[in-house]
């Protein structure tokens, strides 16, 4: 469960990125985070990861108030959250398999578990036959699927995606969204910041809309709600 209570964020340079944002996300929900460029979506995503903390208000993830986490608790806190980005962030000198394995090594998963688990996620994201490929040999959609596999391989209860389809053509974008939907149906809470109007409108999931840092709309089976520039 995620609770944002009157969350405000002012960056050191005085930029007001979030302003009195309040919402509650239950376990197993699928949430779209929409808003114009600069509305504060990425800032909000960063709070889930405890990369930023609120300047005011409280942000609570899985019963942990991120403002009071000790530095040494942060790594363990982050293990309960998977994340994918618009630019994939794969390691170019590691194969698909190794990129995913990397996430398991980092959390100290034993080799036996890695051997069992990695083929599973590769299957789940539809890349079973690309395990030995290097990232530069993959299409954008495939890269994002590797990133998703890496994000979920340790079975975090929450998966974040910050504009996961921003670099993809519509077909690939749909495939990625369907994959996220599938992961959500298996029980993971999924939160997606996106500009993909068509997809948001079609999928009919909960939508939280931000405008200049303020939460202006929070609706079940919502729509994107405005035209992209």
């Amino acid at each position: 469960m995620v609770i944002a209570k009157n969350v405000g964020k002012v960056y050191v340079d005085g930029n007001m990125a979030l302003d009195d944002v309040t919402f509650l996300i239950q376990n197993g929900e699928f949430v779209f985070l929409v808003g114009a460029s600069g509305a504060g979506k990425t800032t909000l995503i960063k709070m889930f990861l405890r990369e930023e903390i609120p300047s005011s208000g409280e942000f609570i993830v899985n019963d942990k108030n991120i403002s009071t986490l000790l530095p040494r608790e942060i790594p363990y806190f982050r293990r309960s959250i998977g994340v994918v980005f618009q630019d994939f962030r794969l390691l170019p000198d590691k194969t698909v398999y190794e990129n995913i394995e990397f996430a398991m090594i980092v959390v100290g998963a034993p080799r036996k578990l890695r051997r069992k688990r990695i083929p599973e996620v590769l299957n789940q994201v539809g890349l079973a036959n690309r395990a030995k490929a290097y990232p530069d040999k993959l299409s954008g959609g495939e890269k994002q699927r590797v990133a998703i596999a890496r994000a979920i391989v340790n079975r975090p209860p929450i998966l974040l995606a910050d504009e996961p389809t921003g670099n993809l053509d519509p077909d690939n974008a749909w495939e990625i969204m369907n994959l996220l939907d599938d992961i959500n149906k298996r029980g993971t809470t999924v939160i997606v910041a996106t500009h993909a109007k068509d997809i948001v409108d079609t999928m009919q999931r909960r939508v939280i809309a931000l405008e200049d840092g303020k939460l202006v709309r929070d609706e079940e089976k919502g729509v994107y709600g405005y035209e992209n520039e």
């Binding site: 790594p75 363990y76 806190f77 982050r78 962030r89 390691l91 990397f102 980092v106 959390v107 890496r150």
Partner: peptide, 16 residues
Amino acid sequence: RKEIHIMKYIGATNWF
């Protein structure tokens, strides 16, 4: 640094 960044997101401890 990219790799370190990713490691930190995944939940790597500083010592790791």
